[in-house]
Design a protein around this nucleic acid. Sequence first.
DNA 1: AGCTCTTCCTGAAAGC
DNA 2: TGCTTTCAGGAAGAGC
Length: 293
Amino acid sequence: MPELPEVETIVRGLRGVLPGHTIASVRFGKTDFIEDPAALAELLPGRRIESVERYGKFICLRLASSEAAKLPERQVNLVVHLGMTGWLGVRRPDDPIAPHTHAFFELEDGRELRYTDIRRFGQMLVVGGDQLDAFANRLGNEPLEISGAEFNKRLAGRRARIKALLLDQSVFRGIGNIYADESLWQARIHPARLAARLNAAELGRLRKAIRRVLLHAIEDRGSSISNFVDAEGQPGEYQQRHRAYGREGKACFRCGTKIRRAVVAGRSSYFCPRCQRAPHRARAVRKAPAVRD
DNA sequence: AGCTCTTCCTGAAAGC
DNA sequence: TGCTTTCAGGAAGAGC
């Protein structure tokens, strides 16, 4: 599932092939994941793609204002969230169309930018240039850029479980279930700990763990779980380096204890019960139903 | 404020 | 074996 490293991988792929090219026309299959399909169809044709940016898990194509476009004086951005199963990449028009491909952006050179999304949990919308800062500011800090002091401040006094806060896009942008669990394992912090009760050493370990995990995952071009492939169609490698996520019943890489799974913050959470000590009053942590090996 | 449940959707896996 | 049910999850919204 695309989180920060997977989205970054897609963005890097698109950066090599999109900037400088112009959107000639737009067509859609199903549109229930698009905020305003008519606005896309109207505003995008005739615009040149200036750059490809990432805001947390959002991909942003900056489109130039253009005399050839509707509302030519207005700079607009095509913003895409990949949800669970989204994919964005450039194909030749005669390349086979993957099932569940629902948006096609034909470029002036004949190639197509295609959006494929099996479950359609993704999102697609146009954000005006004057609205982009407001859009991005709804998100929390970029975890690869945040300082130690800012990181601690974001979590100070929060009575929520650390796992829930890591997943909250208004706290940090880009972390999802896989990298939350991997970072917590690396930092030796139980997912159900309350953020306010983490000490300075733990907060320091956590910030560094998040950085380390995300950077390594980007190097490996993401984790290929549930069909993730990059903009060129190649799978990532980081799933081979997972230490916690998806490893229920397998030995902890640090201490050999069996990794456990529990539902925390409404999500499957994988952790080592020995390296990651549960909080003393581990109330609402439901054990996941037993799964046979 | 924060937790749980529900909804969206499809395909894979588990269950019978 | 084959059909049916459950589960997975990013994000938002409801209700407590």
